[in-house]
Design a protein around this nucleic acid. Structure first.
Lengths: 221, 221
DNA sequence: CTTATATACATTGGATTCAAAATGGGAGGA
DNA sequence: TCCTCCCATTTTGAATCCAATGTATATAAG
């Protein structure tokens, strides 16, 4: 358990970031139990900062804490995930519109670079790397919206969905390729400064991702 | 410090609800310092549950915690509030649309009753009562959307805006009246099952509320 | 063999304690 | 008068400790 490159001011922040990172990297499974002592020992801190981090994650809808029983990762239903995608879709299209107003050439280059890295990660089969840069793509757009509330809500949606997708053990090549081409289309719209094309392709991307997930989910059952 | 009618399973929840209630009722001012010991003594608990509650509120963007210094209520800039209203507008119009699909006659009656209570509170000059039922109006619609993520985000926006409006010491009759008539218009659209009218009047309501706040804010400076 | 009960164990809730950091005030000097 | 440095006080960070709740096991009764 590392991630110690970044120096934390408080242990609570360290534990929080550590757990959130595990969630985003699909290293924790839905419904998984998070015992305080286990985490404390594993991270080399006492139960106190662990408890604080767990409460924070719970208040963001990522954990469920039952008093006197303990914390576990939420176990979202299909409806929960569909609901999250509905909200995320509205938020990300809004962010896309706002970001387009603020975006300069350097920002566009950053995004092009991220998509290039996505493609590279897919070609090389580096799944974790792909997850990281894929998340970057959406985070950059959310950030460029210049609206911090919007950004934080989008990040939260992404985290909630990450928990659900953690049930998928091996990457589905079909989904990755499709997502990549949709990102390219969004990028194209940005390059052309075409607001409605950007909004529409972002909305399509959300709908497609959601649908792909559940068509895969059905195969599993 | 009461609110003990509801029995809490944990002290942490109690402290959290107590603080959130004070925020929504404008009893705390932007930038106000929240010292752990003060709260602990006032609420009759130790620092531990207070700290947990403070972290939760901070992770929702309501408090700012500086390590080794302490927690204070955020002090949102005008841009922060405008950003929050932008997000809230998108979310509440979405909620309005979804709620209209789920709403039955009993739900409509509940809303009618809430608006009637708003009017009563205004006529009687009961400001705190007004704040409570006004919040209910939006909360009920958010809840009827049937989308829990959407609902939680809307509640968060409302809390963020409550902090800003706490700078207004005495109720502005003009705003209350205007808000009431907008709620009536929304209700009318719901009665007529007119989706686009409902969405539009909700969006207008958001824009007007935001504008009213800042035209008032300018008078103060 | 199943079910109920009691007991031991594990885990959480929360108070307390100690260390560390920040704040405020005063003394001393330019 | 103003600035700087140092020390006392206050407040937070986090580990520890105890009580209470929940869980699991085993024992005994039906």
């Amino acid at each position: 358990m590392l991630r110690e490159e970044k120096l934390y001011t408080t242990s609570s922040d360290y534990v929080y970031d550590e757990l959130l990172h595990k969630i985003l990297m699909r290293q924790l499974k839905p419904g998984e139990r998070l015992a305080e002592v286990n985490l404390a020992v594993a991270l080399g801190v006492s139960r106190t900062p662990v408890r604080e981090a767990l409460r924070r994650l719970a208040s963001q809808g990522l954990l469920e804490i039952i008093p006197n029983v303990g914390a576990r990762l939420v176990s979202p239903s299909q409806k929960d995930v569909e609901d999250t995608f509905k909200v995320r879709s509205v938020l990300e299209t809004t962010a896309m519109r706002l970001a387009l107003q603020n975006m300069d050439d350097a920002n566009l280059e950053d995004l092009e670079e991220v998509v290039a890295q996505e493609e590279k990660a897919i070609r090389r089969g580096e799944f974790e790397e792909y997850l990281a840069v894929n998340e970057d793509f959406h985070r950059i757009i959310a950030h460029l919206s210049g609206n911090e509330v919007l950004e934080s809500f989008i990040k939260n949606c992404i985290a909630r969905i990450s928990i659900y997708t953690a049930i998928i053990d091996s990457p589905i090549h079909e989904i990755l390729e499709s997502s990549l081409s949709e990102h390219k289309k969004i990028l194209e719209a940005i390059r052309e400064r075409d607001v409605s094309k950007a909004e529409n392709s972002m909305e399509e991307h959300m709908i497609n991702t959601s649908n792909f997930l559940f068509s895969y989910g059905k195969k599993m059952v």
